[in-house]
Design a protein around this nucleic acid. Structure first.
Length: 221
DNA sequence: GACCAGGCACATC
DNA sequence: GATGTGCATGGT
């Protein structure tokens, strides 16, 4: 079999799904909220919590910092880990208020390395959450690696399943056309493909990437 | 009723 | 540095 490239994977997924339009959110701040709430959680549960936040008029950093902890926790309940996530959301909002006057636009003005370092220094923001915010809320060039990214590529023999976050990010960032929209759409396609076809128990049936390949089969060109 | 889901921090070795 | 564990709801 011919060697595959990341571009081939993009084309196959795009032909199947078309444009995903990922990330679904009404504002940059909502992207950041969703990025924290979706940690180890299915998106449908995140959506319920976001509906609750809007209904409680908590979709603003100042409101989140000022409201009763129990009120925030109640709104976040459907997304799971609600006590943990309430603390993480609050920590992010405290930072946004103190350092950027509550403005995502101001946050996005930080140079990329500084932006990433500051986000990673916050409680509850790890590499994936930071990169979600940087790419989809600040519109800067980082590739987001998630469980689906690692699982899809490793099951197809393209990378070692134990590859580290930064190594996998570097792989995409050095091989793809360095366009923000390309990175957004690629991650969106991986999420959709992962969701439908590449769960912990594979469902390769209709997968645009074909069946999981055996070890030792094609490697990335 | 068991299993699973787009992470992260913290404890322990 | 690697590995294990807690955190919780809702869908299948």
């Amino acid at each position: 079999m011919a060697k595959r490239t990341l571009d081939d994977y993009y084309d196959r997924m795009f032909q199947h799904f078309g444009t995903t339009g990922w990330w679904p959110a009404g504002s940059e701040f909502e992207v950041a909220i969703g990025a924290i709430l979706t940690q180890n959680t299915v998106w449908s549960n995140v959506e319920k919590a976001i509906v609750n936040l809007k209904a409680a008029k908590l979709m603003r950093p100042k409101r989140i910092v000022e409201c009763e902890p129990s009120r925030l926790e109640t709104a976040l309940r459907p997304s799971g880990y609600f006590r943990v996530k309430a603390k993480r959301l609050r920590a992010f909002c405290e930072y946004l208020n103190a350092r950027h006057r509550g403005s995502m636009k101001r946050l996005a003005k930080l140079p990329l390395p500084e932006l990433r370092n500051e986000l990673l220094a916050l409680h509850g923001i790890g590499p994936e959450t930071a990169d979600d915010i940087i790419l989809y809320a600040c519109h800067k060039l980082v590739f987001v690696v998630d469980t689906y990214t690692r699982r899809i590529l490793s099951r197809h023999g393209l990378v070692d399943p134990a590859i580290g976050y930064e190594d996998l990010r570097a792989l995409f960032e050095t091989r793809l056309d360095p366009q923000v929209d390309t990175f957004k759409e690629y991650h969106g396609l991986l999420v959709w493909t992962g969701n439908r076809f590449c769960r912990r128990t594979p469902r390769c049936g209709e997968c645009p990437l074909g069946p999981t390949l055996k070890k030792g089969q094609p490697i990335l060109e």
